[in-house]
Each structure stands twice: as C-alpha cells, then as structure tokens.
C-alpha cells in the first residue's frame, strides 16, 4: 500500500487537479501499475474531487482501461475487419484455448494476459497479433507456439 501511495503521488505531481485530467491520469496509472486498482481509484477521487463512481464510470467506458492485474507479457489480437476476414477471431480462440484463459484474463503463472483490439491499423498484413510492443503480421494458428516461445 505504501508503495502504491508513493507511485500515485508521483503521478499526480505532473497534473493539476482539473477534472479534465482524469483520462490522462488513468492512462498514466495504468502504465505504471498495469491496471486501475480500487485503491488507485480512491486516491484519484481525493485528488480530483470526483466520486469513485464517476471515475469508475469514465474508466469502464473506455476499452483501454483494465481492472485486473496484467501478466509479464501482453498479447493483443487484432479483431479489425481486415483481420476478421482473414481469420482474426479464430486466432483469438486459439490463444484462449492454448493459454486456457478468456479474453481480458491473465494466465495462472502470470506469463501472459490476453486482449482483443478493434484495429491496430496494420490491415495490409492481416491477421495481426501484438505481443508487448512487437507486431506480428500474417499470423496463423500453427505459428502461435513458436511466436510465444521467446516471451518468458
């Protein structure tokens, strides 16, 4: 808890307490902590003088924000149109099956978390999967294992 408080206070230093800063603050908190935790929402509530429900209302509106801890590596499967017609949703199913988790969850060993995204904008190379900051084009269900291997 102490640790969290220090981190959050550090984030608040870069912002004024204008409620218009709510989204950038949430983004920064997620970047530092990996997700939006309940104690973090309480801290933001004190800082911006907004109720916790208002903050949760905004955070849950946007697909970027997560309320569960993340794994060491994040897998993002593109579910855009170009990826869909080239098998994006089938890739997503394969990840869910291989990792034995559902979209938005994290594996038990905390190695991977899994999410879909509306479009990564690399449509010409569909279907596309992003692992951390690496983008893999022309993916296929038979390439999953070898693609995940380097990520420990």
């Amino acid at each position: 808890m102490e640790d969290l408080n220090i981190k959050i206070k550090e984030i608040f230093r870069n912002f004024s307490n204008d409620p218009g800063n709510l989204i950038p603050i949430l983004q920064k908190v997620q970047k530092e902590l990996g997700y939006i935790s309940l104690p973090a929402i309480e801290e933001i509530s004190c800082f911006l003088k907004l109720t916790e429900s208002e903050i949760y209302g905004v955070a849950s509106f946007y697909s970027q924000f997560r309320f569960n801890p993340r794994g060491r590596h994040s897998i993002t499967v593109c579910l855009g149109t170009a990826c869909h017609v080239r098998g994006g949703s089938i890739l997503m199913e394969a990840f869910e099956r291989d990792l034995e988790i559902k979209t938005g969850e994290c594996t038990l060993d905390k190695r991977f978390d899994l999410d879909g995204v509306a479009c990564l904008g690399c449509c010409a190379l569909a279907p596309v999967v992003k692992i951390d900051n690496d983008i893999y084009g022309n993916m296929s269900v038979i390439k999953l294992k070898e693609t995940l291997e380097p990520y420990e």
């Binding site: 949430l26 509106f61 946007y62 995204v117």
Partner: peptide
Amino acid sequence: IKEGAGAFVCGEETALIASIEGKRG
C-alpha cells in the same frame, strides 16, 4: 496531444469533446 482511450464513438465530434473534457465519450 490527447490520447484517446479506446472508444469508437469518440470519432463523433461532440463525443470527442466530452472525452477531452475528461468525461465519458
């Protein structure tokens, strides 16, 4: 620079403005 947080509807201009103001888009 304001980073959007992942909401398709924020391409609509009044929703975009709400989002910059820190509200639900």
